[in-house]
Simulated assay, not measured.
Amino acid sequence: MDAKKYLEDVKFIDYEIDSLEKEKERLLQSLESSPDISEEKVTSSPAGSYDDKVIKVVEKRSKLEDKINSKVDELVDLKEEAIDMIDQLDNRWHRIILRRRYIDGDSLVDITNDLPYVYKSVNRLHDEAMENFRKIYNMS
């Protein structure tokens, strides 16, 4: 297994969950933007047309919520595992940088702004941390 890909998977699950949440919101908005039902529309519309739309939206939303919940469970498990693995590194700066980069999703520039190092040093520390991570877990 590739160490960087393993750690980046944590970030990508976050992005996927965000995307699914936005899709769920779009479904809700499509339901809310549907015209209100009035007595005239009910008698002049084909039977169940609005109800069918509502049912389809609710079913889609329910499936999306199930998918989101599954992804959240996956993310929590993966993050716990990754944090435990990162915590095995001896160097505290390595732990901080890998946590910030792959668990919190911060860029190296953002990390540099919060640490007493210049970007070049943070980048070097990141490379060292990744190398140590690979060695500990026999990853490529």
Rank of each mutant, 00 (worst) to 15 (best):
I103F: 08
L64W: 00
I86M: 05
S62V: 10
M85Q: 12
G105L: 05
D66P: 03
E81F: 05
D77K: 13
K67F: 00
R61M: 12
R100Y: 09
K60M: 02
I96Q: 08
V54F: 11
A82P: 05
D110M: 05
L64Q: 05
E74S: 13
I111Y: 00
E80K: 11
A47C: 00
I97M: 10
L98Y: 07
M85R: 15
R61E: 06
A82C: 07
M85N: 13
K67D: 14
Y50R: 15
D77Y: 02
I68V: 10
E80Y: 01
G48C: 06
E74G: 09
S44W: 00
T112W: 05
S62A: 12
G48L: 08
N91K: 10
D110G: 15
K71R: 14
V72I: 12
Y50C: 00
L108G: 12
K63D: 09
D84E: 11
D84M: 04
D87W: 04
S49T: 13
K63F: 02
K56M: 01
S107I: 10
V57G: 01
D77H: 06
E59T: 13
D52Q: 13
S45K: 03
S45D: 03
S62W: 04
D84F: 03
D73V: 03
G105N: 10
V54K: 14
L108H: 08
H94T: 04
S49D: 02
V109K: 15
A82G: 08
L89N: 07
T112E: 13
K60D: 04
H94P: 00
I55R: 15
L75Q: 07
R101F: 09
R100K: 15
I83R: 03
R101A: 07
R95I: 03
L75M: 06
R99E: 07
D73S: 13
Y102I: 07
E65M: 14
R95L: 02
D90M: 06
K71V: 03
I83N: 04
N69Y: 05
R95S: 08
E81M: 08
S49C: 04
V54D: 02
N69G: 12
L98G: 11
S70N: 13
K79H: 02
V58S: 11
A47E: 07
M85E: 12
D104F: 03
D104Q: 11
